[in-house]
């Protein structure tokens, strides 16, 4: 119960963003069932939106999966951060917590850890309510998509860029992070121009290449 209370703000935030995913997914050719299954099994926020973007352009399956994986590499750090608290927990319970690990559940659980009241059960509650919000939002969006007519009227095609812009500002507060982000942005916009001298980078790999290169340079320069 404690976990559900803690997770309620996440639920309220996930429903509308999940609905945006459902609307966009069905607009590019997903059935409502596929959109819901995708949200229920991936629970990957930004990763799912990027997948839609690439699929719309007809990217290969491998390129789509690679891009979402790179976007979700941050979970390696989250998992590593949480892992000392999860020692001695059965592998099955660790798997359940891993499955529901998102930016928001991580933030809530880490804050709750500091208060000292957190437990495996409260973390599972946070995960369960977050998952429910994401899946319910997707279902509502996918089913309502046909009712709201032309989604572009509501600026839906800017949903992804808007969310990424907010997350960018959140992540790039520190000067080093801001420089890494700026470098990645310059590469993502500049690399396609190399086509003029015969170097063509497939657009579906652009984000992966630009962000990995920028992170590598930043990690090498900022010791």
């Amino acid at each position: 119960m404690r976990g559900i209370n803690l997770g309620m703000p996440i639920f309220l935030g996930y429903v509308p963003v999940g609905a945006a995913f459902g609307i966009i997914a069905t607009s590019i050719g997903f059935t409502a069932a596929q959109a819901v299954v995708c949200s229920a099994t991936a629970l990957a926020g930004a990763g799912q939106f990027i997948a839609l973007n690439l699929m719309k352009e007809g990217a290969a399956v491998l390129a789509v999966v690679a891009a979402t994986t790179v976007v979700n590499l941050r979970y390696v750090l989250f998992g590593a951060t949480l892992s000392p608290h999860l020692k001695g927990m059965p592998l099955g319970s660790q798997a359940v917590l891993a499955f529901t690990l998102t930016d928001e559940t991580f933030a809530v659980n880490v804050a709750d850890r500091r208060s000292g009241a957190s437990s495996g059960a409260s973390m599972a509650g946070v995960g369960a309510i977050a998952w429910t919000g994401w899946v319910a939002g997707t279902a509502a969006g996918a089913l309502a998509a046909s009712l709201i007519g032309d989604p572009t009227r509501w600026g839906v095609e800017f949903a992804m860029p808007a969310m990424f812009t907010a997350l960018l500002i959140a992540l790039a507060e520190d000067r080093r992070q801001a420089i890494a982000a700026a470098l990645a942005g310059a590469l993502a916009v500049g690399l396609p121009a190399l086509a003029a001298i015969g170097i063509v980078i497939p657009s579906s790999w652009l984000i992966v290449i630009a962000s990995m290169a920028a992170a590598t340079i930043a990690a090498a320069v900022f010791k």
Binding site: L73, A188, I207, A210, T216, A219
Partner: peptide, 23 residues
């Protein structure tokens, strides 16, 4: 590796926003 990982999220968002907004 931890240091490299710490720069991945901001880099991903930087490349995504630049690509979505300028291209």
């Amino acid at each position: 590796f931890v240091r490299w990982l710490s720069y991945v999220p901001a880099s991903v968002m930087g490349s995504l926003v630049a690509a979505e907004v300028l291209r």
